[in-house]
Design a protein around this nucleic acid. Structure first.
Lengths: 358, 358
DNA sequence: TTGTAAGCGTTATCAT
DNA sequence: ATGATAACGCTTACAA
């Protein structure tokens, strides 16, 4: 009702001590008599005293909150990472300021400035790159920064990512082991480092295996389901179709799955599909997508740990990187290509579809 | 590099005016000469001056951030609502503090206190109820609060929700129109007001239509996919099976879909399935779930608007409610029950599955 | 139109 | 072991 909260002076008066002593008592400083400490604590609880964050923030120059910059929280990949971050951050009772940039440079910049004004303790940037000016501002403010999934081009920061190359390599190796030779690739967002990494890895793997290097097998996507849909359609319109489609993320793979279904093309009997990320719904029995697992929660966890260490410790130590390992999750969207002799070694595969299977 | 940001005194000195004038200039107060204003602004931009949030927060008793309390950000329903909130809140350049409670009462309480310490401008609580003590604290601090999807039991706050009853009613009506008489219901989380509403609506609709009221047709779930899976399995184990399953949310409906697929039961030929919420992936061609649309983004939007109005305006006005309208989205998981004469009126239905359809 | 000064609620320094 | 005091950076009366 009242809207007035007790200040440290109220509490001090109530306890008959000075505000300094209250502060010390509450902070568990050694120089305060046990009885006094207990008295202060008891009274504090009684009147529901809590220090004002603004006041201590002003005094101490910190805010006990960390900024989390994401492109689109509604992308199913993102919330899992956020959970990992939140979990760690909450243990130190820091708050998370969620900044959804919608991939707009302007909004990103504005958010960064807002975070700096708030004197955040640190910042995590997920699947995005800050432009040079923003980076400079963050550095000038001395705010620890961890980038996730995209490396900063020139400035070096703490970084958490996944070994995209080995992930893609595992997928291609597996498809090859099933007998595929014409493997298409749906690229991720234009000019994203993770997308570039994955595409480069695909090209390297194609070369290493001596596969069909037909450039029309690589089509541009943008990590969205729609782009996976149209990618699959254009691939299936090719005079010489691929027997397998590897997408740079699950959303596009699922889009491809939908398109193939619409086109009446059977998966995996006619075409195999592999995704990347292993989002939650990929394991639904009706989707049952073979994919590369991206340890999402661990990613968030690692990013938060790196950040907290940097906040607590020496800011001048060289930047650290955590590169997590992907793993292949074989489900039901992969099988040997049609009319192929038994492949060399075929892993057990869950049959999908209602009586389609191979 | 430096880590020292310019203060208002620096800027004042630089401009050869007093800090008060700088403050007024930057705040566009009328009592400042145009030239002075422009000078101050230019210099401010030059040296990159931004007021410290902590300082003005302390002075003004506000923080330009709003707390968003969710149970689990990884639940696909949640991020869409968050997007709606973020969009509106960002327009006023307020920040969002994301609090993920994991549905733990303790964590919820701790987060609320932390938010109050931060002097947040307002608070949105999504699909959860604060306990009486927390509510009291929020009220005592005079912090505007909007609850979403769950009404506060005793305290009355601003509220945004959906008309659960009419949503469920639409689903049941539709199933009945297809010819179903034995319609099962998978209940949502125990002791959640939205789950209760939906279940009550189901019961009412069953009664209104004079359907089979067999109590074993109502099984308890918890809004998770797993619970939908086991619910469907237990329903299919019934000696007299339902011909349709209505789940209190999409996740459970998808779980049911998976279970039915595993059991070799065809959807919708043998059993129809209807969800609630219309999460993004429900429209995937391979899932193609008939469901009730919950306007998620609009929900977040409305909640944020309500909150901002309350922050800006009179706090003593009576609480307002926004109740959004659900709508039926007919997709491929619904059809007339097996061996039924043509239903009275059958809406066009996308056939799903690979040649299952009816 | 501008400047002076008080005060927001803490914590740290320095006395006592 | 405790207390007085200054300072953090800002905004707003009020004075000039």
């Amino acid at each position: 009702m009242s809207g007035v909260r007790p200040t440290i002076l109220d509490l001090a008066a109530l306890c008959g001590v000075s505000p300094a002593t209250v502060s010390n008592a509450l902070a568990d400083k050694p120089n305060v008599k046990a009885e006094t400490r207990d008295l202060v604590r008891r009274k504090a609880r009684e009147i529901g005293y809590h220090a004002s964050s603004a006041a201590r923030g002003l005094r101490l120059g910190r805010s006990w909150s960390i900024g989390l910059v994401v492109g689109d929280i509604a992308n199913p990949f993102v919330p899992d990472v956020v959970r990992g971050v939140e979990d760690v951050v909450w243990r130190e009772r820091k708050n998370l300021i969620l900044c959804n940039t919608d991939f707009q440079a302007e909004k990103k910049t504005a958010y960064v400035r807002s975070l700096l004004d708030k004197q955040i303790d640190g910042m995590i940037v997920l699947s995005q790159i800050l432009d040079a000016q923003d980076m400079e501002r963050v550095a000038a403010a001395g705010i620890p920064l961890v980038t996730v999934n995209r490396r900063a081009p020139d400035f070096s920061t703490d970084y958490v990512g996944i070994d995209n190359q080995s992930g893609v390599r595992m997928a291609v190796d597996y498809l090859v082991s099933l007998g595929h030779r014409r493997i298409a690739f749906v690229k991720g967002l234009f000019r994203s480092s993770s997308a570039d990494d994955r595409f480069a890895a695909y090209q390297a793997a194609v070369q290493a295996h001596g596969l069909d290097g037909d450039p029309s097998l690589a089509v541009q996507g943008d990590y969205s389901m729609e782009s996976g849909d149209s990618a699959a359609r254009s691939l299936m319109a090719l005079s010489q179709r691929p027997t397998a489609i590897l997408a740079a993320n699950d959303l596009m793979a699922l889009g491809a799955l939908g398109a193939l279904h619409d086109l009446g093309i059977r998966v995996p009997a006619d075409v195999s599909v592999v995704g990347f990320d292993n989002i939650q719904l990929a394991e639904h029995p009706l989707l049952n997508l073979t994919t590369i697992n991206h340890p999402k929660r661990e990613t968030g966890d690692a990013a938060a740990r790196l950040l907290l260490q940097r906040i607590a410790g020496d800011r001048n130590e060289p930047p650290r990187s955590v590169v997590l390992k992907p793993s292949l999750i074989v489900r039901g969207t992969t099988a040997p290509p049609p009319s192929t002799p038994k492949p060399r070694r075929r892993r057990p595969v869950t049959v999908r579809g209602t009586g389609d299977g191979g």
